[in-house]
Amino acid sequence: MSKPIVATTSLAGCFGCHMSLLDIDEKVLDLFKLVELNKSPLNDIKKFNKKCDVGIIEGGCANDENVHVLKDFRKNCNTLIALGSCAITGGLPALRNNIKLKECMEEAYINNITTKDNNKEEIIPCDKDIPKILDRIYPINEVVKIDYYIPGCPPRAKLIWLTLRALITGEEVDIPYEVIKYD
């Protein structure tokens, strides 16, 4: 049997979840004995070049590019996993969900203490080449169907390892209390 193929990405996240994945230390070697990696920031493959078994998504959707990447993952992966608080709840970026987008942009580019004297023309970047910001942060399960969730900010390395191993080997796993944490 060929090895299951895994892809990963970070949307509106901080890459902390990917760092936590690397925190499984030497078990990373075991992981890559078990799986083949496709599109991922870990190997810098930018585009899917084959159908994947598992897609791991970090971060929520903050702009239209995030939505595009997420839909691409859904199309190319049989199983999608939401990794971490931002993917599940929107996380820290979602703190802006109750503030109007216009207000956010003005605060960032016009009224901010470091920009107010340096942006006299009051320009808010809106080039067609940069992704468009969405009205709010969308947890990824509001955009596509998600199969599994791994909570945490970041998820504990052990939780990621146990879940992935269980998913790949098909063996049921009993997750210890200390590793399910939301922060």
Binding site: T89, G91, A94, L95, I175, Y177, K181, Y182, D183
Partner: peptide, 22 residues
């Protein structure tokens, strides 16, 4: 209930019950 940004995280009863119920 965004736990990473909450002062009560770790001593919160609601969160603890969610942990208990996995």
């Amino acid at each position: 209930h965004f736990c990473p940004a909450c002062e009560k995280s770790g001593v919160c009863d609601l969160q603890a019950l969610a942990y208990k119920h996995k």
